[in-house]
Amino acid sequence: MSQNRREFLKTFAAIGATAATLTAVTPKVTKGKSTRPLSPNRKGVLVDTTVCIGCGKCEWACKTAHDIEPGSINDYNTKLTDNSQRRPSENALTVVNQIDISNANSGKIKLQCMHCEHPACESACIVGAITKQENGAVTWDTDKCIGCRYCMVACPFQIPAFEYHKALDPKIVKCDFCINRTTEGKLPACVEICPVGTLTYGTRDELVIEAKRRIGKDPDKYFNQVFGEYEVGGTSWLYLADKNLVDGVFPKLGTNPAPGVSESIQHGLFAYFVPPVALYALLGGVMWLSKNKEKNEGGH
C-alpha cells in the first residue's frame, strides 16, 4: 500500500513537474500574434483635447453614420454638464466628457475605441471575430461573433459594449473607425464634422511627429506626453492634453501589448502540439508499465 502510494506520488510529481516546466519555460520561446508586423501606412487620429470645445457634434455625426437614432444636434453640448463620466456604450460609440468632472472649465475629451496596435480584444476573441485591419481600424464581424463577451473582459480601456437587452442577435458595439467611410476615401464622420479641428486624421507615424511638434512649440500648454504612443504597445488614436490623463481619464497601463503574457502562455502550452502529445505519451507509458507490473505480480 505505502509502496503504491509512493509510486503514485512519484508519477504524479512527474506529471506536475512536466506541466510546471511547460508553463514556466516555453512561453519565452514562442511568440504570439501581438508581435506581427503592422502596415506602415496605418491610419490614426490625433485628439488635441486643448482645442475641443465640447460641442458634441462628433457624437451626433457618429450616431448618424452608424444608424443609431441621433436626436437633435443642438442637444449635445448640454450632455457635458451633467457632471458624470459617460462611457461609450451600445447607444453611443463615442462620448465627450469633461476631463475633470467637477470643473466645467477643464478640458474636454472625446472617448472611443483606441484601435490598439496589438488589440487585446482581437487576441481574446474565441472565433476571431475582431480584426486589426491594415488601415489600423479594429473591426468586429457580426457573422462570426458568438456573444461570449470575452473581448469586453480583455479590453484594457473597457470599450466594447454589448446589447444585453436583445434576445436575438445582440451585437458587440464599438467604434469601427468608420471603416465603411474610409474605404470610400471619406474622413471618419467625427473627424469630418468637428468645427474646431480637435481631431486630425492621418498616418499614425506622422501624427506622433505632429503631436511632438505641438508639444515642442508650446511646452507650457501641454503635458509632455502623447498618450497612446506607447501605452499597451501603442494605439492608433493619440491624445494631447494640458495634464496627465492617466488615472483621471485612462487607467494606468504598461507599455507591453495587452495580450502579450496570455498569448505566450497559450502558445507555450501548445507549442507545435508538443506538450499535449508528450503528456499523452507519458501517460500511455505509465499505463503500460503499471499494467505489466500487474501481470508480473500475478494479476493483483
Binding site: 487576441s123 481574446a124 476573441c125 474565441i126 472565433v127 476571431g128 462570426k144 458568438i146 461570449c148 470575452y150
Partner: peptide, 13 residues
C-alpha cells in the same frame, strides 16, 4: 462557431 472559426491566440478558444 469555434469548431470552424479558430483563433489559436485565444485562451477561451
Amino acid at each position: 462557431h469555434p469548431l470552424i472559426m479558430w483563433n489559436g491566440n485565444s485562451a477561451l478558444f
